[in-house]
Design a protein around this nucleic acid. Structure first.
Lengths: 257, 257
DNA sequence: CGGTCCCTTGATATTCATCAATATCAGTGG
DNA sequence: CCACTGATATTGATGAATATCAAGGGACCG
């Protein structure tokens, strides 16, 4: 019965991809939405096939048609100056929405490049706009997501304008660690998907400085580094270096995973 | 007829303060809204009496109840670190909306301090939220405003992470100049409402460096400085220093005012 | 007129960028 | 499997930009 089996496979695939069944729904656009409304949302979301490392979700200057939610993988957003030099504006993880800065002028002001094999959900903006009228919670969640983004960027501003190189790197590592933890992954050990050069660019440092800092933090016993693999050895100290309260009580397991 | 005259005075005051009659309506929340809808908006907006220099629109940590639109004057937003040190996150001019970073957690993450005598319009958020359902354009404009804010902060990130001290100050001056021009004020000559220390804090520089840069830019003939009064003497060169295209053709008078 | 705040200017110290050399890794084709 | 290649990362030596420390000068306010 190959046909039946195939149909069944598609069904499973659809179900697995549905927002209502997505493991990221508590972090993503569907927050605060349920039942029939989430089905409506599901209906306008287009799932794209996985993108290969190095390909783009969107390019700079492209007309704005959709927002994108990251389903798996990771993405860097960046702009190009007049002189063609790159400025990394963010690293994005599953459940996060990119393209928000394009809503106003209806044009993408940054490019989004995939750092590893990555799947995204496409959220066509005009249909999202319509749906917002039907589903009040959707507009609210969109505002909340944008508010969160503004807050995150203000915090990054503080890091860039006040902190030393070492503190900046610590802040990035802690930031990634916390975001991974929200996604149910280990906050203590992870793989960096971006290069030293990307990190330096993002933090306003030379890539050589970033490299030296990794070795220095390792010598201080705060982290263990092997190429792109990072293990945080002394979370409280690293948090303190990053300028955060030494320990925030986790809602998860007491071992801090 | 004192009563009649008084009533008339109130009427005029009301009319003068109405969104529909506000000189900032093309920059502020009412963009894309008109007729009956703008009257509805007018109805929920509370006009506050002018705030004196040094007073706060809202404090850090306060519960979020409203957004605020600046009617006249200027405001700095800032956060306080653990150690009590200040980080200026923005300078805000009439027509701009502050408090957007509080929507997500329903708590203000920064404080807003008035730099000179300033009037604000209070936009109670729960009523704005209701009104959004009745007036589709309102939600859209709010998203656009937030998108613009995200874009502005990304551009600031680039300035902080890539540019030299001189370029940063030039970028701030050009940014203020353009925003003043949008408001119908002179883009060539204006009064800074913030201190050197605030500027340095915002740009990630020591206040002494800011002071030195003002003298240096003056020596180079790019600007004329007298205390807080700035005149831009060489707009194209200053724009170039700020990392922008030498001249953007203005939609206003050909003399570039 | 004196006090305070803000700004300016100078001398020195420090951090980090830059230049340069080497090392390591991932892929490619022999 | 190995040698080759280009991208990425580490490490060292040097220099430039900017912070910090210190002192003095205006401007504003009572």
């Amino acid at each position: 019965m190959p046909a039946s089996s195939e149909a069944r496979a598609i069904d499973i695939a659809l179900i697995r991809q549905a927002c209502s069944n997505c493991s990221l729904r508590h972090l993503c656009l569907p927050v605060g939405i349920s039942g029939k409304d989430i089905d409506r949302l599901d209906h306008i979301v287009k799932r794209r096939r996985p993108l290969a490392r190095g390909s783009h979700v969107f390019h700079m200057g492209e007309p704005f048609r959709a927002l994108y939610a990251i389903r798996s993988g990771s993405v860097k957003t960046y702009t190009l100056d007049e002189d063609g030099s790159e400025q990394v504006t963010g690293f994005h993880l599953p459940g996060e929405i990119i393209g928000l800065d394009a809503i106003n002028a209806e044009q993408h002001h940054c490019a989004a490049k995939v750092l590893e094999t990555t799947s995204v959900c496409e959220l066509p903006y005009n249909r999202l706009d319509e749906l917002t009228l039907l589903v009040p919670g959707l507009g609210r969640q969109l505002l909340r997501i944008m508010s969160r983004e503004i807050l995150a960027e203000e915090q990054l501003l503080t890091v860039l304008s006040k902190k030393s190189a070492e503190e900046r790197l610590a802040a990035l590592l802690i930031n990634l660690s916390m975001r991974l933890q929200e996604r149910g992954l280990s906050s203590r050990e992870f793989q960096l998907s971006m290069s030293r050069s990307d990190i330096g660019n993002y933090l306003g440092l030379a890539l050589e400085t970033v490299s030296r800092l990794f070795t220095r933090l390792q010598q201080q016993g705060l982290i263990a580094v092997q190429h792109k693999r990072i293990r945080i050895e002394a979370m409280p100290q690293l948090r303190e270096l990053a300028g955060l309260r030494p320990a925030k009580v986790s809602r998860c397991a007491p071992d801090g995973r």
